[in-house]
Amino acid sequence: MATYRGSPSAFSTPASTTLFRRLTWEGTVPLEIRVDSKELPANSDRGLETYYIQAPRVSYLPLIVPELKRFLMDVVFDEAAGRIMKDEDWWFESEEGSLLKWHWPLGLIYDNHTVSASIRGTSSALPQPLAPLRIILHLAAPPTEKLLLAPSAEACKQAFMGQMKEADFLRWGNTKRMTGLRKAEQDGLWEGIKEHNFDEYWRVASKVTPTTTPLRSQSPPPSVAMHTRPPSADPQGATPDRDGAMNVRSVPVRIYLPDGPVLQDLVPPLLEDGVF
């Protein structure tokens, strides 16, 4: 195993931050995935073509395809159909016929769909709490133009890394933290998502996200700190203040409105009066 330089998460991340990250990470959504009945190959075992999964919110559709494929091959398709099945042609729709994006996290797809449906419908049509999101799996002819990306795990990874760099740029005005990662580290971010491995993901992610110990580094006041405690001589080995969450240029935030546009703008970490 590769040895990693002191993982900041182990030393300087407050327990509350780690807890919050852990809770976010462990969130799951219920999905009910059914093969489009018109596309089921001949001799399929009908009645079994629905797969239920409690999937991580931070995962993506392409990442659940292998599990889904195993199930369909084992239980639903016969051997002849299994042999000609090409999962690179698979794509997903909601029950109402809206295309599900490959580069949106599953939690976002679930929430966006649930909220959109609940404001569209009457109060009697409010979705049941914890009801699975019903998804239709199509086995051929992906509408690549509308999906915007090739339906593959590799394209999803590229989109994910692009988003990480965009966030990096918003925080620091450049992407040096992301591009400064070694190839193995960059891959580790995606592997962490893919394997749903919290430690693997945060071992790398903590190198590009701001530190969350603002109170210690902001007091005593900077003028005093400069004279008495040069950063290089800090006995705590604390991460320099410039990496602090309050020193980012902007907080990467995006608001997905139900049935509507996605909003993004520069969001400073502090209000004008210095309030968090």
Binding site: L149, A159, K165, E166, F169, T175, V262, Q264, D265, L266
Partner: peptide
């Protein structure tokens, strides 16, 4: 620096970058 998501709008990208 980075490739934006294809469904980012030009307006959002302009405001931020």
């Amino acid at each position: 620096a980075f490739a934006p998501a294809p469904d980012d709008t030009v307006a959002n990208l302009y405001k931020s970058f």
